[in-house]
Design a protein around this nucleic acid. Structure first.
Lengths: 225, 225
DNA sequence: CTACCACTTACAGCTATTGTAAGGTTTATG
DNA sequence: CATAAACCTTACAATAGCTGTAAGTGGTAG
């Protein structure tokens, strides 16, 4: 479930926002007091922060700026209708999106979902099996405290093995996934790349093994699962 | 602050563990009821889970196994002294570390810290400025929904610009960081690579600009901060 | 205007990756 | 235990992408 943090001083509006998001299936929460708000927000590891910048003492602007520097999540700014968005951009806040309040809940949800989707793409590149993860853009394979950057062909093999884990992957599936054809012209090329991949895995000392099932294909075996 | 989740059915032991970790400066918490424990644990995005496998109904083993498959955090297993760790490994739990209870708080903290450190390394490779992040192993640069994989030289330049953000970085600093020498033999090479880097950034449509300060050096400017 | 700093493009050497070739090892089976 | 099929490994050459050099253009301060 995706977590949304609401930063809003008006208690009624805050509860309403939280309720709106909860109804929409999100894990929504918001701090009641504003001491160390920044820490409170980041500690929650939210997927999205909804932030009212018209907080008491103008601190909302500062909070937005400092969150922006470190945040790994998008920020949706709520602002009173009479505060021009030009003013906000002029202040260099540059949030991911703006919305003037009061606003229709459906409009808010729609904007929030757009932001969540956009930011999610960055994470979609990560495949995971147990403590093993693979970045399918760079083919960086991480396992516990070790990592390994695979060449493209080896990376594609690893990708399929992880996607199909814990099932055995047939050779023809590997051929179509890596070379785009089932009629493998040279049967050997897969084995050569398997060999290279296995060598890399063992040289890095990763507890990851690719086991061959005679006549069936290959399976991934991850240590510590 | 790093978050540690405790899964322990004995209420007294649970509170003691939580207290121990809180005293040590961690954000510790643990669910009181065991419905949907798995969801509850993952929803908290912990940096470490401490798990008593002797939960009622043997469900502790199942929980550990299913967490292990998806978890991005290490798991420290607590087990009664009479349950042999061999039995645990035999069950294919393969946790990141074991500890028999009761155990000395300092011992527990030490083990936990070792695990946190180990897993942290994978994240240390990530530099961040606002919504911009750089993996210094692969030089994958991510900004909002776009990404770009930089060549080594361009990546090293980007790395220094991010590390020094928002300061201006002098040419000689760039030379020593990228080529390891301040006496830049050919002044041009830096500009060539700057040119390539800028071209890549703009072609990807990233809101990231490298500005030249005549006679001083270069600064990074990230959109949306 | 001019000297200096900054930018861009083209080119050639180098390195990592890839597929081919050839030969070795393991495993199932009669 | 002999044989064939499946699987594994190493070496080599072609290729593609990265890097620095060269050479020339554009912009700015004094």
């Amino acid at each position: 479930m995706q977590r949304i943090v609401i930063v809003e001083d008006d208690i009624y509006l805050r509860e309403e926002l939280i309720h709106t998001f909860q109804k929409a299936g999100y894990d929504a929460a918001g701090p009641a007091s504003f001491e160390n708000v920044e820490e409170k927000v980041t500690a929650l590891c939210p997927d999205l922060a909804v932030l009212d910048v018209n907080l008491p003492g103008k601190s909302g602007y500062e909070l937005c700026k400092s969150l922006k520097i470190k945040a790994s999540f998008p920020i949706l700014i709520l602002t009173a209708r009479d505060t021009l968005s030009d003013e906000l951009t002029a202040l260099g806040l540059g949030a991911d999106d703006f919305l003037t309040k009061p606003c229709h809940p459906r409009r808010l949800i729609a904007r929030a979902e757009r932001l969540l989707q956009t930011y999610d793409k960055g994470l979609r590149a990560m495949l995971r099996v147990g403590r093993l993860s693979l970045d399918t853009d760079t083919y960086k394979l991480v396992c516990a405290d070790r990592f390994l950057i695979l060449a493209e062909t080896e990376g594609k093999i690893m990708k399929l093995l992880i996607e199909r884990y814990p099932d055995t992957v047939s050779k023809s599936d590997l051929f179509s996934a890596v070379w785009g054809t089932e009629e493998f012209v040279d049967e050997n090329i897969l084995q050569v790349n398997m060999s290279r991949l296995r060598k890399n895995l063992s040289e890095t000392g990763m507890e990851v093994v690719i086991r061959n099932i005679r006549g069936k294909g290959y399976v991934l075996e991850v240590g510590g699962i």
